[in-house]
């Protein structure tokens, strides 16, 4: 098993534990929920096939679902996110062959591009998960506030996690 695989397994378990035990219980101002574990889907290597990304996404989402009693909500959203990852990165970074490091990060893509990419993915995730949750229970204004607030929080968490993990990389170099 390569170093990258081990890193992702370890980081994935850590982030899911954090999500389940800490972030699921925090709703900032009653609206904003941070989804830190999708950082894994954001930063999986682009060389990995879509099938693998979707499989990892589905089972990560399912695990979080089981812990949080949300029954398939995270699984669906993660699968959609994993499927849309490549199109989104193509949108902001059309020349894929120029990317030096296969794992998208602020270091490999440059901060502005990575920020746009992370914000788009956060928005997609929060949009799907809250739309799915509120299907039986529609209240447009609350829904909108929750989506926007959670997107912002998730985006900040992804940027923060990214700066933490990539600073380690630099030290190693």
């Amino acid at each position: 098993m390569s170093k990258t695989t081990l890193k992702f397994i370890f980081l994935g378990l850590l982030l899911m534990a954090l999500q389940v035990m800490v972030f699921n219980h925090i709703a900032l101002l009653g609206y904003a929920v941070g989804f830190i574990f999708i950082y894994i889907l954001v930063s999986l290597p682009l060389t990995l096939s879509v099938n693998w990304t979707m499989t990892i996404g589905f089972f990560m989402g399912l695990t979080v679902d089981i812990f949080a009693d949300t029954q398939g909500m995270n699984a669906i959203s993660c699968t959609i996110l994993a499927a849309l990852r490549r199109p989104v990165i193509k949108l902001y970074f059309p020349r894929e062959e120029d990317i030096t490091d296969p794992c998208p990060s602020a270091h490999s893509l440059g901060f502005p591009v990575f920020a746009k990419y992370a914000l788009t993915l956060s928005a997609i995730y929060c949009l799907t998960i809250f739309l799915v949750e509120s299907m039986s229970f529609f209240r447009p204004l609350t829904l909108l506030i929750r989506i926007v607030a959670s997107t912002v929080l998730t985006f900040l968490l992804i940027i923060a996690t990214d700066s933490l993990t990539s600073s380690h990389n630099e030290k190693r170099l």
Partner: peptide, 9 residues
């Protein structure tokens, strides 16, 4: 995966 997710949901 979508069908499995929707089934749960």
């Amino acid at each position: 995966y979508m069908v499995a997710g929707c089934f749960l949901l």
